[in-house]
């Protein structure tokens, strides 16, 4: 949901991107209207519109005149490519920093990641080690 860390319009854009990446919003489907976003998140409609427009400028969404905004073909692939590039800075770096703080060596960290990717529970059961967000 909306927090204080970043401009709201960027958070709205991010939420829509998330739904495109995880498939909730399929390509060539219509997204909710600006006013629906505003009412749902209890934000100013101009701010919601600004968030949607960021994605129009990026080519992720396009406008059908008189109907509304739609997800462009190829939007998902474009977002996945961009997010994969950002993944290292956004997720791997903080993960490694937290591991260093706890004294987890690199080889153990990689084993933990592989175990996590396989969906196995954390070692020791009750004590979950969570990465810094």
């Amino acid at each position: 949901m909306i927090d204080d860390s970043r401009p709201i319009f960027l958070q709205i854009a991010g939420l829509i991107e998330n739904e495109i990446v995880d498939g909730t919003l399929a390509e060539e489907t219509q997204i909710p209207s600006t006013n629906e976003f505003a009412a749902f998140h209890r934000i100013n409609p101009a701010t919601a519109a600004k968030g949607v427009n960021v994605l129009v400028e990026d080519g992720i969404l396009y406008k059908k005149r008189g109907i509304g905004m739609f997800v462009s073909t190829g939007a998902r692939a474009a977002l996945v490519a961009r997010r994969t590039q950002e993944f290292f800075e956004q997720y791997v770096r903080p993960l490694v920093a937290e591991a260093r703080k706890l004294g987890i060596p690199a080889d153990e960290l990689s084993r933990m990641i592989i175990r996590g990717a396989d969906g196995a529970p954390a070692e020791g059961g009750n004590r979950e080690r969570s990465a810094a967000s």
Partner: peptide
């Protein structure tokens, strides 16, 4: 302060 609220955020 006289600013856009989104400019203040962050």
């Amino acid at each position: 302060i006289d600013a856009e609220s989104d400019a203040l955020r962050g």
